[in-house]
Amino acid sequence: MTAPLLVAAGLSVRFGGVRALDGFDVEIRTGELLGLIGPNGSGKTTFFNTVTGFVTPAGGKVMFAGEDITALAARHVARRGVARTFQRLRLLTELSVFDNLMLGQHLVLDHGVWTNLFARWRLRNQLRAQIEAARGVLSHFSATLPDRLFEPVAALTMIDRRRVEVCRALMRAPRLLLLDEPSAGMTPDETAELMGDLQNVKAARPDLAVILIEHDMGVIESAADRCVVLDYGRKIAEGDYATVTRDPAVRRAYLGEEAD
């Protein structure tokens, strides 16, 4: 078996006296879709923030493709091929769909003074290629969005914004995609549609690994290859959906049921 793409070992994060993550271990392999579940405040988003370099852990380490990325700043983590979405969307709402997707392309765009200010014909050629690329990614998720490329994000519905955010994260063909609760603010049907589209993208990009934070257990059941359950910053269960949901500790913590 190949080495895992991402390994978090003994990850601990403290906010004041609160242990947001407490010796958390997790691994994900290339091509896998891992569901990360747990009650509110169990440390899921903190885990994302730690991996992506927004939070520095108090202990433990994060290895990505064999490299220690624990201490790297967010922009350096992004450089290595990790992309993410945010639970509360972080789109640049006054800018167009295209401009938002171009933020996703930041690391591959040509920011040279010559191209941008003087050789405008070169910029125009790059622009055409990027429009093509943006339409390509959007078309996996919606039939209408590719034609609304130059509309401001503020004019889009919630589901279209979600789609744009996922597309922004997919623009630069990341190796690891972190999706922070994509179903928030959407109907179950919309969520199912979004996840179906994501599965299609994954099928087309066999290298892409995804970690999905989700509250909707139906989404996890249909989408995740494997689940990890967090509670109070610790991993309390791991395995496929059926195993995990049968686990007494999980039922106690996550589903609020008394184990019998």
């Binding site: 967010a74 945010f86 972080r90 800018l95 630069r172």
Partner: peptide
């Protein structure tokens, strides 16, 4: 524009 509107999102993309 990205720097002005959302530094966090911007740094998440490098």
């Amino acid at each position: 524009d990205a720097v002005r509107l959302d530094e966090t999102a911007a740094s998440a993309f490098g």
